[in-house]
Design a binder for these strands. Structure first.
Lengths: 207, 207
DNA sequence: GGCTCGTGCGATACAGTGTATCGAAAAATA
DNA sequence: TATTTTTCGATACACTGTATCGCACGAGCC
């Protein structure tokens, strides 16, 4: 289990094969089936284990609580990039996941939200946003790292490709936006969307 | 290509293997490498082809435009469930994807947003939300279908599992929420979060 | 204590996967 | 037409997740 985590952190999710994990423990391929029925189950255990790392939500207002939850998940995904790939992919009901939901709900209640429908609503909506935001940020981070390691490919393939596309004249607004808009970092976009979401909740809930 | 799409629609993304796609065309396994360098590239073509199906954004206000974009993507994911698995996973720069972004930006401008930074900001934030919302809704749909087909497993495994978990007394708030909160359908949660997001934008942008 | 029997374990086997290789066929050049 | 170059796809390879099943080991009985 910890072996699987370490392997995923070190070499990425696609390197996590039952053989390699078992090999890291000096065991045969089928050894893991004593603890797990299928590979999906191993992945779910890994996800649950990350939920177990998440810090207690903090903050006195519900907005601060939601912000701290969001940042906790984002930070975890930056530590374990594979977490982003698994997030939202299967329903997760592991003990640590349930405990994290419990802590989140309790923190919201402590911050003054007493209606369960409201609590669940804001938490579910935040979850939807987080799944996508974290996923896209990690994707972008990987892309940047790849083009950083190999800038030649970027300059010889992607850039001329975009130039050709723009030269067709089919994308005038997009071209203008790419040229004129200031480039926001992934972290900025994350904050931006989170801000919109929380502000919308605050007005909608009249809190 | 169309063969890959049909295969993914019919049997799911994991059934899309180069051999099966080529087989559907009465060709050898390597035949596809004439059109594609790697399997990832095939998947990217599939994603781009779905972007090509998306309807023109409609609406006279920017909020209506964003709503129509959101619904267009959601409907596409409901048609092609595998689309949700691929969304946000890799950077997509296909022609149809670019065209979709172009149409979205143009529609926003036509609806009165003239600042490129604002246009990009709301579109990126919406994108983050959509990736997660669509992904989770499809996941949930699959889970419901699976337990629908095989309700015995749900009743003999998941339900007692949750009951045991609650019986530990570690999740009092969660237990209360599960019992007392009204169950929202995936579509409702999608709308709820989208409403929060748009309302937040509207107040933040003072439009 | 010795012997049988049942059970659980994990090496081996299998049906797949994505893709590198390389001989042959086709196209282009002279 | 002869020769070179390019294109192409069948075969091979390394690897995946998991079903199978012979074997070793421990419990139960005489």
């Amino acid at each position: 289990m910890q072996a699987a985590l370490a392997l995923a952190d070190a070499e990425g999710l696609e390197a996590v094969s039952l053989r390699k994990v078992a090999g890291a423990l000096d065991a045969g391929p089928m050894r893991l089936y004593r603890y797990v029925d299928t590979k999906q189950e191993l992945l779910e255990l890994m996800v649950d284990s990350v939920y177990g790392e998440l810090p207690e939500p903090t903050g006195s207002s519900w907005a601060e609580v939601l912000r701290s939850i969001a940042n906790g998940i984002r930070d975890a995904a930056l530590r374990h990039e594979w977490f982003a790939d698994l997030l939202g992919g299967r329903p997760h009901f592991g003990p640590a996941t349930l405990a994290h939901t419990e802590r989140s709900l309790a923190a919201l209640r402590a911050a003054g939200i007493d209606d369960v429908d409201t609590m669940m609503g804001v938490l579910e909506a935040l979850d939807l946003y987080l799944i996508g935001a974290v996923r896209k940020e990690i994707t972008q981070r990987r892309a940047e790292r790849a083009t950083g390691e190999n800038e030649r490919e970027w300059q010889h393939k992607t850039f001329p490709y975009m130039a050709r596309m723009f030269a067709t004249g089919h994308y005038p607004t997009l071209e203008e936006a790419v040229h004129d808009a200031r480039h926001r970092s992934a972290a900025e976009v994350f904050e931006l969307g989170l801000g919109y979401l929380l502000e919308g909740m605050s007005h909608h809930l009249k809190l």
